[in-house]
């Protein structure tokens, strides 16, 4: 077992009075794909967003417990959230390109980091797009608006945009849920490729997808972590009845 990249200890989250996550503890290993599954509303997205503190943006959120990234507690007062998010990138369920050109979209992160050298930016943009398997499709239209891309292309461009900041961890919230099977296959292939260099956490509703792409799977139910382990084990011989019911589709 590799050394854990992320350790979560006793994490509890409230939206106002409503508890959305209840005392969650788990370890996420480096350079592997961890999948979060569970019925809608069980807190997968909420949990994912605690890993790069995107929940800070929502008013009335209360969080207790610890999240350690490379053994640093990211909820420590001394942590710089802005730099944390450069380390822990995120890809959203709905592709969300900026209303700018493809080039500007991908170059956004590096520019924010103070890179203004054209040559350097061009290299970064090209490498990122190549890593996201979309370079061939867009190399002739880099300066066209990103809004003109198809849904699947947009999502891969968003992945490229996240890669351009050179994160170590990539969080993906149902990245393929709005896509057709071919685009989904491309994204899955991409995830498989990316895990060589990145630690990936992915939320999915698609059981087959979880089984195909992930090394580890965590099953959530009503804000609690029910079961967590090797994907193969979870999908073949789960310990808990709830997990089995959900995976086999016997769930309400």
């Amino acid at each position: 077992m590799k050394q854990p990249k992320i350790q979560i200890r006793d994490l509890t989250l409230f939206y106002g009075e409503k508890m959305a996550l209840n005392s969650i503890s788990m370890e996420i290993p480096e350079k592997e794909v961890t999948a979060f599954i569970g019925p809608s509303g069980c807190g997968k997205s909420t949990f994912l967003r605690t890993l790069n503190r995107m929940n800070d943006l929502i008013p009335n959120v209360r969080i207790t417990g610890e999240v350690l990234v490379d053994s640093l507690n990211i909820y420590d007062k001394q942590i710089d959230v802005v730099n944390l998010r450069k380390k822990v990138g995120m890809v959203f369920q709905k592709s969300n390109p900026f209303t700018k050109s493809i080039y500007e979209n991908v170059a956004y992160g590096p520019k924010i980091n103070g890179i203004h050298d054209r040559k350097k930016l061009e290299v970064i943009v090209e490498t990122s797009l190549q890593k996201a398997f979309i370079w061939e499709e867009v190399k002739d239209r880099l300066h066209d608006s990103a809004m003109g891309l198809s849904g699947g292309q947009q999502q891969r461009m968003c992945i490229a945009r996240a890669l351009a900041v050179n994160p170590e961890i990539i969080l993906m919230d149902e990245p393929a849920s709005a896509l057709d099977p071919i685009s989904t296959a491309k994204i899955e292939e991409l995830i498989f490729e990316l895990k060589k260099n990145y630690t990936i956490v992915i939320v999915t509703h698609n059981m087959q997808q979880a089984a195909r792409v992930s090394d580890l799977t965590a099953f959530f139910y009503l804000g609690e972590l029910v079961e967590y382990g090797k994907t193969r084990k979870i999908f073949t011989t789960p310990d808990k009845k709830q997990t089995e019911d959900y995976i086999t589709g016997r769930f309400g």
Binding site: D70, L72, I74, I79, D80, N83, L84, K86, K87, P110, N113, G114, I115, K120, V123, I124, T127, S128, L163, A164, V165, N166, E168
Partner: peptide, 14 residues
């Protein structure tokens, strides 16, 4: 090649 973004992750940078 993106590594030369100038930003290195460390305790310090966080």
């Amino acid at each position: 090649p993106i590594e030369n973004t100038g930003f290195v992750f460390s305790k310090e940078s966080l």
